[in-house]
Amino acid sequence: MVKKKFKVTLAESAPYEFIELKERFDCSSPSFSNYTIVWVDVAKLVELSEIDPFSSFLPHVNQWSKEKKELYINLMKPDPELDCLGTPFVSFTTHETTTKRFGFFKQRTVTRSVGFIDGRHRARICEYLGAKRIPVITHVSHKADFEQYCT
């Protein structure tokens, strides 16, 4: 099986024009048919990833050590001799809470967030290098949420 590759365009100020991310597994295969690729807006993905205070999402790349930043930027560099990294693997969660106000008035709050199964560093590096949109892999049950809130 040949995994699909996705070309992600970067900002003009980035050290290279684009990066490539590959499909983690063949979503057209019966074994993985309940997963799909969705192209998302990087800024919205990051915003929804930072909402959950218990999330393990990473700080902005500017807060990383110089060595760590250089390591991950070099890992993302396109190289025809090497295989590229996989798309970030993400999930979408909606939390609903109801609180009582003044003993009887109920206030409903809905919080939407993105969780990473894998690919947090790739997402942050894509953000840092100026990518506007990136492909992510998610369960088909989350596809509509990503299309509504992250595109």
Rank of each mutant, 00 (worst) to 15 (best):
R112T: 09
V2F: 11
P15G: 09
F25I: 00
Q63Y: 12
H60W: 07
F54M: 11
E12K: 15
H95D: 14
T98E: 14
Y16E: 04
L21R: 05
K4G: 02
K132A: 13
P78V: 08
K100N: 10
E17G: 13
R101C: 10
Y35S: 06
E67F: 12
Y35E: 13
E96G: 00
I73M: 05
Y128E: 08
A123R: 03
E70G: 09
S113F: 02
E96D: 06
C150E: 01
F32M: 05
L48I: 04
D83S: 14
P80C: 03
F18T: 01
D145V: 01
Y72P: 01
M76A: 15
Y72A: 02
K132Y: 02
L75R: 13
S56M: 08
I125P: 09
V8Q: 07
L10M: 11
Q148I: 01
V140Y: 01
L82P: 04
V46S: 08
V136Q: 05
F105D: 07
M1A: 13
V114A: 01
V61L: 09
C150T: 00
S91D: 12
F25S: 07
F18G: 00
Q107K: 14
T111W: 00
E147K: 11
T151E: 13
K7L: 11
P135D: 09
G103V: 07
H142R: 03
F92K: 04
D79P: 09
Y72K: 03
Y149V: 03
T93Y: 07
P53W: 00
Q63V: 00
L85N: 11
D145F: 13
P30G: 04
L82F: 11
L82H: 12
Y16P: 09
C27E: 11
L58E: 06
S31C: 06
Q107A: 11
F92Y: 15
E147A: 06
L129F: 08
R101A: 11
E47K: 15
I19E: 05
D41L: 01
I37Y: 00
K69L: 14
T99N: 14
E17A: 15
N74C: 10
F146K: 01
D145G: 06
F57M: 14
N74W: 02
D83K: 12
T98I: 12
C150H: 02
I117C: 07
K77W: 09
S13I: 00
Q63L: 14
I73L: 08
E47F: 11
F6N: 03
L48Y: 15
D41H: 03
C126A: 15
T36C: 13
N34L: 11
P53T: 03
K3I: 09
F18L: 02
P78K: 10
D118G: 03
Y128I: 02
A43L: 11
W39S: 05
S49Q: 01
